[in-house]
Computed example of a mutant assay.
Amino acid sequence: MSGPEYRARRTLTAAPADLLLDRLAAELERSFGITRTELYQVDYRLAVLLPLGDGEPIAGPGHPAWRCFDHQEPVVAEGAGWFPVGMRGERRGVLRVSPLPGDPAALGELDAIATVLGHELTAVTPTTDVYVTARRDRRLTLAAEIQWELLPGRSRLRPSFRLAGQLEPAYAVRGDSFDWSDDGRQLRLAVINGFGEGVHASMLTSLAIHALRNARRAELTLADQAALTDQAIYAMHRGAQHLSALLLELDLASGTMTVVDAGSPRLMLLREGEVTEQVLEKQFPLGMFEDTDYREQQFQLRREDRLFVVSDGVIDATAHQIRYGETALDRFLRRTGPMEPLDAVRSLIGDLRAFVAADLVDDAVAVCLDWLGPQP
């Protein structure tokens, strides 16, 4: 096997973790005559594309870099090519190269190479701070650092579903979070509405997520996952601290959704352009009482249904004594129908910031799940 894509793949897998872009740039110059290779990563707020190394941040939505990022397609503009960098639906940023080769087939090869770069960035990020540091335009609080390290990612794509989530305020989030896992048969999703302030809140959420993962990986039922996490939190805090959570399990063969509502964030259903709140049985938050028994509910999703999970930081955000959840939320959710899930949660958080005319004070988490239907 040979060719530019194969050589770039070998170059990236052999490169030291901190030199991925340097080694890739040298290979692209050999293969395509490209003399300028730049990586721009999206920041934690999904608001600016930040260069790795020298260069100016890109914030304007009409810029070719943002068109590439938003549509996840190559963009050619002013003699340069922009290519989406990501992995399995997780959008990391864009790769800029110039000058472009004259062969039209090279665009497809460069697009594939940008995807390979996305995989390698994901693989090496736990071993170096180079790429993590470059994608923040300000310092994270310690609590936010803990929260972002907990996340499985911000977006996920499979033939049967699309999924994305976002935390705000991104650089100072405290207790809100989400977690997910899929094994080809089931998608398991947990959305946490945290309790407390600062590091205390992030540590409580960290305990909850690790307890949920431990129970999930032991293949316990959803109700037992809630009960085990409830016991872990109660054993640590004796009811003085607790948190709300919504646990969901989607059967990917049938679209059946199993839910445990532990004092949860709100679950909204967008179906055929109409928004309704999915009525759930409210149960005690995790860690509030000792030995709580949790009960599962089920409901059926239809093909093309969209679910939103939003915390009270979204619902209760207030401007001029008007709550966002009472006046603006349903209207905005209806407008997200054509958007990809990551664009939907990013736009929702942006609309929320515009509503309060400032950065958010309370934590807010928004998760969007599209059910596309069972696949062969």
Rank of each mutant, 00 (worst) to 15 (best):
residue 289 F to Q: 04
residue 52 L to N: 07
residue 202 S to T: 01
residue 250 L to G: 13
residue 89 G to K: 06
residue 19 L to A: 10
residue 178 F to P: 04
residue 279 V to G: 10
residue 145 E to L: 00
residue 138 R to N: 07
residue 299 F to E: 04
residue 131 Y to G: 02
residue 289 F to N: 13
residue 251 D to R: 03
residue 92 R to P: 01
residue 229 T to P: 01
residue 321 Q to F: 15
residue 120 E to Y: 09
residue 269 L to P: 00
residue 320 H to W: 12
residue 302 R to C: 11
residue 152 P to W: 01
residue 351 D to F: 12
residue 344 A to H: 09
residue 302 R to S: 08
residue 115 T to E: 14
residue 254 S to L: 12
residue 194 G to A: 03
residue 349 I to G: 15
residue 117 L to M: 07
residue 255 G to W: 03
residue 375 Q to G: 09
residue 39 L to T: 01
residue 92 R to F: 10
residue 236 M to G: 02
residue 200 H to M: 15
residue 31 S to E: 14
residue 83 F to W: 07
residue 145 E to N: 03
residue 226 A to H: 02
residue 27 E to M: 11
residue 174 R to N: 11
residue 134 A to T: 01
residue 82 W to N: 01
residue 111 D to A: 05
residue 303 R to C: 02
residue 58 I to A: 00
residue 109 E to A: 03
residue 345 V to F: 02
residue 124 V to Y: 04
residue 290 E to Y: 00
residue 110 L to D: 08
residue 47 A to M: 10
residue 292 T to E: 13
residue 187 L to T: 08
residue 329 L to R: 04
residue 311 S to V: 02
residue 339 M to D: 12
residue 47 A to E: 15
residue 376 P to I: 09
residue 71 H to L: 13
residue 111 D to C: 08
residue 32 F to K: 00
residue 172 A to I: 04
residue 203 M to C: 13
residue 20 L to Y: 11
residue 90 E to R: 04
residue 200 H to Q: 12
residue 270 L to Y: 07
residue 235 A to G: 10
residue 124 V to N: 00
residue 355 F to D: 14
residue 190 A to D: 07
residue 72 Q to L: 15
residue 352 L to W: 08
residue 268 M to K: 03
residue 234 Y to P: 00
residue 217 R to W: 09
residue 295 R to H: 13
residue 21 L to G: 14
residue 322 I to C: 15
residue 125 T to W: 05
residue 348 L to D: 10
residue 209 I to V: 08
residue 373 G to S: 05
residue 291 D to Y: 10
residue 194 G to F: 03
residue 83 F to C: 00
residue 140 L to G: 11
residue 50 L to R: 02
residue 89 G to A: 03
residue 209 I to H: 05
residue 128 T to R: 08
residue 132 V to M: 06
residue 326 E to S: 05
residue 44 Y to W: 15
residue 138 R to I: 06
residue 19 L to V: 03
residue 302 R to F: 13
residue 143 A to E: 08
residue 79 G to T: 05
residue 83 F to E: 00
residue 191 V to Y: 08
residue 358 A to F: 11
residue 249 E to A: 04
residue 59 A to Q: 04
residue 280 L to T: 03
residue 211 A to Q: 08
residue 66 W to T: 07
residue 214 N to C: 11
residue 123 A to K: 06
residue 17 A to H: 15
residue 83 F to Y: 01
residue 335 R to P: 04
residue 106 A to P: 01
residue 26 A to E: 13
residue 99 P to E: 05
residue 132 V to F: 11
residue 369 L to A: 13
residue 11 T to M: 15
residue 41 Q to A: 01
residue 249 E to L: 08
residue 44 Y to Q: 14
residue 357 A to I: 03
residue 304 E to P: 03
residue 163 L to Y: 04
residue 30 R to P: 12
residue 41 Q to T: 00
residue 6 Y to A: 10
residue 13 T to L: 05
residue 131 Y to I: 09
residue 13 T to P: 10
residue 75 V to F: 13
residue 97 V to D: 00
